[in-house]
């Protein structure tokens, strides 16, 4: 079974260096499929986005899920959470999630059938 273990585990890296060793900020309970959208406003509190955060802001001019942000930018999820938390704290992005209604689920069922 070790074969499968090896397949799933990646190399040891230090993504936390990117975010100064912090784990989470207000991005704490961020849902993986919550939608991130740039507000287009100015940053509060004299905050200056870092280069990775600038890339995020460019990406989320159209609503993008947290998981897609991580995937597109090829950054681990925990790092993305912290970067998003800072952007949210300074008013540069909004994060939200629409819940699934019966109508949406029926649409998904029909959409899957049509695949």
């Amino acid at each position: 079974m070790t074969r499968w273990m090896d397949e799933e585990a990646g190399p040891v890296v230090r993504p936390y260096a990117l975010i100064g060793g912090r784990t989470r900020s207000s991005g704490d309970a961020l849902d993986l499929v919550a939608m991130v959208t740039a507000t287009g406003g100015a940053a509060s509190g004299g905050f200056v986005p870092g280069p990775e955060q600038e890339r995020i802001l460019t990406l989320v001019t159209t609503a993008t899920s947290v998981a897609d942000v991580a995937s597109e930018l090829d950054l681990p999820l925990g790092v993305v959470r912290v970067l998003l938390g800072d952007l949210q704290d300074h008013g540069l992005i909004s994060i939200g999630r629409a819940s699934a209604s019966e109508r949406i689920l029926k649409e998904v069922i029909n959409g899957l059938r049509a695949l």
């Binding site: 799933e8 585990a9 990646g10 190399p11 040891v12 890296v13 230090r14 993504p15 936390y16 260096a17 100064g20 060793g21 784990t23 998981a67 897609d68 995937s71 681990p76 925990g78 649409e107 998904v108 959409g111 899957l112 695949l115």
Partner: peptide, 21 residues
Amino acid sequence: DGVEGKTTTTVAMDFGRITIR
């Protein structure tokens, strides 16, 4: 690097996307 003893492994996850519309 001065980061308090935190070592992480990144784990690749299965992640798929189906666009319904």
